[in-house]
Design a protein around this nucleic acid. Structure first.
Length: 434
RNA sequence: GGAGAGGUGGCCGAGCCCGGUUGAAGGCGCCGCACUCGAAAUGCGGUAACGGCGCAAGCUGUUCGUGGGUUCGAAUCCCACCCUCUCCGCCA
């Protein structure tokens, strides 16, 4: 959520932000209108309440006196009538101001975060900028296969049975494929905790509505989520959701920040908007595994924390020895809650595609405001909103795709990258079918 | 799932039966001051979040799990819901 002060004082900044994101600017005027009305009503109502308190106090005193003298407990008529009138007025003012407040809140929750100044402006994904690339595409003496063809002989992915169990865009991993996936998760968690100081967490996969509002997924993007209507719980689309709400409605005392977390969770997405896209293989599925980094930091440490997350994610890809590129995502392509996003894409030589395996974002104080997370800079100081940052490190099974396609051999086997071998317990996946 | 107890300020805990100057006794913690060479002990004072008005000092409103109701007025009465604890049942 944006700071309403900013909308009041610099409505044009907010309008510009919306425009570069390709969104309608009418909400700004709506907010301004509602905010003005709300403040009028609140002032008026509070004055009435002040009066009510004062008269009630007087009446209370009289009652005490009467009772002390052993009199009847009937309060004086004039005062009662005056108060009756006041409370009726308060009731109507209160009702209206509550309505206005609720409308204002509703609109505020639909306004996306403001991009940082140096985020590239662009109308669609063509506006994204390749900031850097790492590694050389590997040379093959044969035509490298896409993972779905490679799998014909390896038999580690079972698309048909995934569909049998759950429908389109679900799959089953088997044997060394399943083991490779697990090895990656364990390896990534180990690196982040042991080398980079992120604290490992295990989170619920089902969360309440408020939790998704805090991270920014609701109220606008419910279409992309699975939900259990009976219990009113939602399946998480990313660990970011739970990590944001970890400190919801808290005031963090001085010295607590920075907080750095890493979580492995499955992620559930309906992929409604991607119908028909990426239907082959396991690039785009309804359920996937991901290791996520998340930081709560003081605003002055925001940039540093962002670079750290990007660095951690990159370092994993480098250790796997697979070429990748860093994309600076442009205004219109950035997520709702993000103020700045870098994507990391690994090269998959079989399907000849850059695969997005990480998306690192600064959310500034946007999520902190939504989730009401604050910190005290110093003892006794007024609470302020921290910045939150997140990044995948990394998203599976796309990393598996890149590994399979990059390290495939002429005989159809796949060599396991050195760093993973202690985790897989094998150094090669052999074809099992002729 | 069944039975009972309970949810009050940073923490503990009174108030709730019998609604009225109660943001709420008392204690702990924390901060400041005094005493002291210093510390402890002691004494005194302070101690929230959020909203509105205001340049500011300040004034003011709301908040006793949440939401509704009764009432001139609710921490206190009524209703619904959520959560915690204990016991029983069930289960990985």
């Amino acid at each position: 959520m944006l700071n309403i002060d900013l909308i009041r004082k610099e409505p044009d900044t907010v309008r510009r932000s919306l425009t570069t994101r390709g969104e309608d600017t009418a909400v700004v005027d709506e907010v301004l209108k509602l905010d003005t009305r709300r403040r009028q009503l609140v002032t008026e109502r509070d004055q009435m309440r002040g009066k009510q308190n004062e008269v009630n106090r007087r009446l209370g005193q009289q009652m005490a006196t009467i009772r002390k003298q052993g009199g009847a407990a009937e309060p004086p008529k004039e005062l009662r009538e005056e108060l009756d009138l006041i409370s009726k007025q308060i009731e109507s003012l209160n009702e209206e101001s509550n309505q206005v407040e609720a409308s204002l809140q509703r609109v505020m929750l639909t306004i996306p975060n403001i991009p940082l100044p140096d985020v590239p402006v662009g109308a669609d994904s063509d506006g994204n900028i390749v900031a850097s690339t790492w590694g050389q595409p590997k040379h093959f003496d044969f035509k490298p296969l896409p993972h779905w063809d490679l799998n014909e002989k390896l038999d580690i992915l079972d698309m048909e049975r995934g569909v049998k169990l759950s429908g389109a865009r679900f799959f089953v991993m088997k044997g060394k494929g399943a083991r490779l996936q697990r090895a990656l998760i364990n390896w990534m968690l180990d690196v982040h905790t042991a080398e980079y100081g992120y604290r490992e967490t295990r989170l619920p996969y089902l969360v309440k509505e408020e939790t998704l509002v805090g991270s920014g997924n609701l109220p606008k993007f419910g279409d992309n989520l699975y939900r259990d209507a009976e219990e009113d719980l939602w399946l998480i689309p990313t660990a970011e959701v739970g990590l944001t709400s970890l400190h919801r409605d808290e005031i963090l005392e001085p010295g607590v920040l920075p907080l750095r977390y890493v979580a492995y969770t499955p992620c559930f997405r309906r992929e409604k908007t991607s119908a028909g896209k990426d239907t082959r293989g396991i690039k785009r599925v309804h359920q996937f595994d991901k290791v996520e980094l998340y930081s709560f930091v003081e605003p002055s440490k925001s940039e540093e924390a962002f670079q750290n997350i990007v660095k951690c994610s990159e370092s994993l890809i480098q250790r796997l020895g697979i070429p990748y590129r860093v994309l600076r995502i442009c205004t219109s392509d950035m997520g709702f809650q993000s103020a700045q996003t870098y994507d990391l894409e690994m090269w998959a030589p079989g399907c000849e595609e850059w695969l997005e395996v990480s998306s690192c974002s600064t959310c500034t104080d946007f999520q902190a405001r939504r989730a009401n997370i604050r910190y005290r800079p110093t003892l006794g100081a007024r609470p302020e909103y921290p910045h939150t940052l997140n990044g995948s490190a990394l998203a599976l099974p796309r990393v598996v795709i890149a590994i399979l396609e990059t390290y495939q051999q002429a005989d159809g086997s796949v060599v396991i990258p050195e760093v993973l071998r202690p985790y897989t317990g094998f150094d090669r996946i052999e074809p099992v079918k002729k």
